[in-house]
């Protein structure tokens, strides 16, 4: 079965990266959700960031 159709049959479990209000909304609706304590990388140069991502295989 396609993974999208598998998703439709499963319990939705969410990882939220970014706006915390989205996590709050899902909690309010009793959906399982976990908030990632995301922060911008300390590298500010976009090219350096791309290079770093490539090195790390991301």
């Amino acid at each position: 079965m396609n993974k999208i159709n598998e998703l439709f049959k499963s319990e939705l479990q969410v990882i939220n990266i970014g706006l915390e209000s989205f996590k709050e909304s899902l909690k309010n609706e009793n959906i399982r959700v976990i908030q990632v304590d995301w922060r911008p990388p300390a590298v500010t140069d976009d090219r350096a960031l791309d290079a770093l991502n490539k090195l790390l295989g991301r």
Binding site: L7, S10, E11, L12, Q13, V14, I15, N16, I17, G18, L19, F22, R32, I34, Q35, V36, D37, W38, P40, P41, D46, L49
Partner: peptide, 26 residues
């Protein structure tokens, strides 16, 4: 609040959806 996606997956191994709303460049 884990620091990364990997950390979140350790805690919620059956997660199936990620919502991303960080700045566009990331």
């Amino acid at each position: 609040h884990p620091k990364s996606l990997d950390g979140a997956l350790e805690f919620m191994s059956n997660a199936n959806m990620v919502i991303i709303s960080v700045a566009g460049k990331y």
